[in-house]
Design a protein around this nucleic acid. Structure first.
Length: 417
DNA sequence: TGACGTCAAGATCCG
DNA sequence: CGGATCTTGACGTCA
């Protein structure tokens, strides 16, 4: 069972995806963006490996304008070696990747131009995975599309467009239920007809259920029928509702208790779970560490990442975790993340913010220039008197961490959340 | 015609 | 000028 995240990671320096607008997209600009993004992807894969993350969605933005402008460029040839090397690393580590054309890739549109662009987009996504030398179990997840006032007809249009696709696309294609137009029963129906797997998305199903009497676990079992051996293990999407936002909006972080409950219902099955959550890799690490006994060293590493975030939210939580981790023969993962979640739910006080910032400043006080020191003190003063936000202070500290190569701080979460 | 969702680029504002 | 903050862009459908 693998747990993964989508597209980008928090607190992984050098992993950012770059893009540009259409009007600035010269071939030269695009090629240099592609090179940058491939390097970022490599950084992300390395990060995943080091952190026991074995499931990952590659961003559709990897190749900016991949299905239009960049389709004309020889990026596959120019970067063949790099792409293949990334693929080899993925394969050697038994990592599984996927891609997910967005809500604007609509194969069943009545507009033939829209459908043709969708086909181009699927070609682009498949060619990324092909260029990396990855097998069929590295999937492309697609939504069924629009309804256009006649669902039956819209579905039959999807099926006929599917039948016309190249085999290289068909073998990777997976359908997912959405939260508005096609619920899980619709999707199972269509996917069974054309013989492709289904990704069950629990939050979409919650917002737009096919049948409220059927549990998530039962839908997941129903979907398992469509996953054949060559498709790899069954995949699902898991997310939690953001409290106070629109139904279907992803939460900032995965709450560990409901996740563990959900996971226990599936523990007999070999299922890959893609988390859809704002804090990305952070929630993945939490979930992985709570359902596996990873060793206390892994928790100590996590503790180090969260340290200053905790200190600014709850000095008491900070001390609690330090005590929890004293017994080196224990593995208090659930307890630790519970304290982190509780602390993050608290109202943050200015005093604690200032205190945490001063702790981080401690890394620089001996090497920073006079100007850097003055700037820090001014910013902190202005934060205290409510003239700037805390992020201004953090950004200054982040610049210093980059300048003085404080990797310990840079891989922590303090600057980013 | 705006809302939807996502992210970074681009534009603008501020000291 | 650098840095913070606001707006736009790119995609298609639906109300």
């Amino acid at each position: 069972m693998r747990i993964g995240y989508a597209c980008l990671a928090i607190a992984v320096p050098g992993s950012e995806m770059k893009s540009c607008t259409l009007k600035n997209a010269s071939p030269e600009r695009l090629l240099s963006l592609i090179e940058h993004n491939l390097n970022s992807l490599q950084t992300l894969i390395d990060y995943n490996l080091c952190n026991n993350i074995r499931l990952f969605r590659i961003s559709s933005d990897l190749i900016p304008f991949g299905s239009s402008l960049s389709a004309e460029l020889p990026w596959r040839e120019i970067f063949a070696e790099k792409l293949f090397a990334i693929g080899q690393k993925i394969l050697r580590s038994e990592m599984r990747v996927s891609m997910h054309p967005g809500q604007y890739t609509v194969l069943n549109s009545p507009d033939p131009l829209v459908a043709a662009r969708a086909v181009e987009d699927l070609h682009y996504h498949a060619s990324v995975l092909d260029s990396m030398g990855l097998g069929n179990e590295h999937k492309m997840i697609l939504h069924l599309g629009g309804v256009y006032g006649d669902k039956r007809q819209a579905i039959s249009r999807f099926i006929s467009r599917y039948n016309d696709l190249d085999a290289s696309i068909k073998k990777r294609l997976v359908l997912e239920n959405d939260d508005r137009l096609y619920h899980i029963a619709d999707i199972l129906d269509v996917a069974s007809t054309i013989g492709i797997p289904v990704v069950f998305d629990n939050l979409h199903n919650c917002v737009y259920p096919a049948n409220k009497a059927i549990s998530d676990a039962d839908w997941i079992k129903a979907c398992s029928e469509n996953w054949k051996k060559e498709d790899g293990p069954q995949k699902i999407h898991y997310s939690q509702q953001h409290q106070g936002k629109n139904p279907g909006a992803h939460s900032g972080s995965i709450q560990i208790e409901p996740f563990v409950e959900f996971w226990q219902q599936l523990s007999e099955m070999n299922i890959d779970i893609m988390l859809e959550v704002k804090d990305k890799n952070l929630s993945v690490l939490k979930c992985i560490n709570c359902i596996n006994e990873m060793g206390i060293a892994v928790l100590e590493k996590e503790w180090a990442h969260y340290k200053y975030c905790l200190l600014e939210r709850s000095p008491e939580g900070y001390r609690k975790i330090r005590r929890l981790l004293q017994d080196k023969t224990s593995y208090p993962a659930l307890e630790m993340y519970r304290v982190i979640e509780t602390s993050f739910a608290l109202q943050v006080s200015t005093g604690n913010r200032v205190n945490a910032a001063q702790h981080v400043w401690g890394y620089f006080k001996d090497k920073a220039s006079e100007a850097e020191k003055r700037r820090f003190q001014t910013l902190l003063q202005k934060y205290s008197s409510n003239e700037v936000r805390i992020q201004a202070v953090k950004n200054h500290l982040l610049r210093l961490a980059e300048k003085y190569h404080e990797d310990y701080l840079l891989s922590g979460y303090y600057f980013y959340i």
